[in-house]
Simulated scan of single mutants.
Amino acid sequence: MSSSSNGARVRTIFRSKTTKALDRMEDPRETLDDSYDQQVKLLQQVRVAVADVATAKKRIELQGEEMGARYQRLGSQAAEALAQGREDLARAALERRAMLESQVAALQQQFTSLDRQTAQLQERERRLTDQVAAFRIEKETIKATYTASEAQVKANEAVSGISNSITDVGSSLDRARDRVAQMQARAAATDELLASGALTDLTAAPDADIERQLAVISAQAEIERQLAALKGGASAAGGASEQAGSGSWTSIGQAGSAGQG
């Protein structure tokens, strides 16, 4: 494999790993969960604010009730002092009552402001609660869809990997078949060359080539002898036939040897 192919493979692997790392960094499920957590924290802050304002409102309400009771008591004391002829005490009670009335008026304004602020915060809390609930449903839907899509991508990649593996296996089989065919052809060719003497059989005994050639000459001489015997006459042929017919298979080829002997 060339260096350029290796470089391309390395770049492909690097891009693949980088893409997977970015996918993990930009996982929308984690982003949605973070956004949801932030909205929940904001909702909690609004609820704490509602509770604080409601507490302040209740404190002013209790203080106003206490001041109202004192206002009524000062009025009763002024009437009782006047009935007993103590106009000076009645005047002092009424003066304190007048001062208390101005304090109650200021307290009433604070109470009204806090009451309006409480209503606004409660309305914001209600809307934010609805928004957080809706966002949670949409978040879980998107997460489920993303998870399903991710599983589908992994399944497709797995199938693609299996397909590539099958393709590689098929290529390997084709290459193996070609190698076997080449080896068989080479074996047949070397057999022919060895038989023709073009190649030397290093495993054969010394002078085997001479013995092989002499064996061929002897076989040819035997054929010529048998042919001459056939031409010599029917009697010789009949005698040979009787000898061949009377004997078993073990006598085949023995006549020529006896004649030579």
Rank of each mutant, 00 (worst) to 15 (best):
D178G: 02
D168S: 12
D168N: 07
L230V: 15
P206E: 10
S149P: 02
I210W: 03
R186D: 11
E65S: 11
A148T: 11
K41Q: 06
A187S: 04
R175V: 04
E157F: 02
L114D: 10
D37I: 06
Q254T: 14
V169G: 02
K57D: 10
V159I: 11
D34T: 08
L173Y: 10
A219R: 13
M25P: 01
R47L: 03
T12R: 14
D88K: 14
G245T: 13
S2T: 10
A106I: 05
E242W: 11
E66I: 08
L100F: 10
A8I: 01
G161K: 04
A229P: 01
A185I: 04
A215V: 08
A151E: 11
Q39R: 07
R96I: 00
G161S: 09
G238P: 03
I137P: 00
S241C: 11
A49V: 00
E87N: 02
V53L: 05
I210S: 03
K17R: 14
R29W: 05
G232D: 15
P28A: 07
T31L: 08
L32Y: 09
D37Y: 07
R126L: 08
R59V: 08
Q77V: 10
A198P: 00
R91G: 01
A49F: 03
E150T: 13
G7C: 09
S102W: 06
K154Q: 09
Q109G: 09
Y36T: 01
A69T: 15
T203S: 07
A228C: 09
E211G: 05
G239H: 12
E65R: 15
R212Y: 03
S172K: 04
A151N: 12
A79E: 15
Q110L: 09
A255F: 12
K58M: 08
Q226F: 12
Q122H: 04
L43Y: 04
T190I: 09
I166R: 05
A54Q: 07
E80T: 09
D191E: 07
E61M: 14
G247Y: 06
S171T: 09
R11V: 00
D201G: 03
Q72M: 09
V169I: 04
L82F: 12
A204V: 03
Q110N: 11
A83C: 01
K143G: 04
V50M: 01
G64Y: 13
T12S: 11
Q260D: 07
T55K: 15
T31R: 13
D209S: 13
A93P: 00
Q84R: 13
D88C: 03
Q38H: 07
R97D: 06
N164Y: 02
L194Y: 01
D174A: 10
K41C: 01
E192P: 01
A236Y: 14
T145N: 09
V10M: 06
E26V: 05
W249Q: 11
Q44N: 08
E80I: 10
E192C: 01
T141C: 00
Y146N: 06
V169C: 04
L22H: 14
Q243R: 12
S165V: 03
G238I: 15
A119K: 13
A56Q: 14
G253Y: 05
K231P: 00
Q39I: 02
D88F: 06
K143D: 04
A208V: 07
S163P: 01
A79R: 06
R225F: 15
A187E: 10
A215F: 02
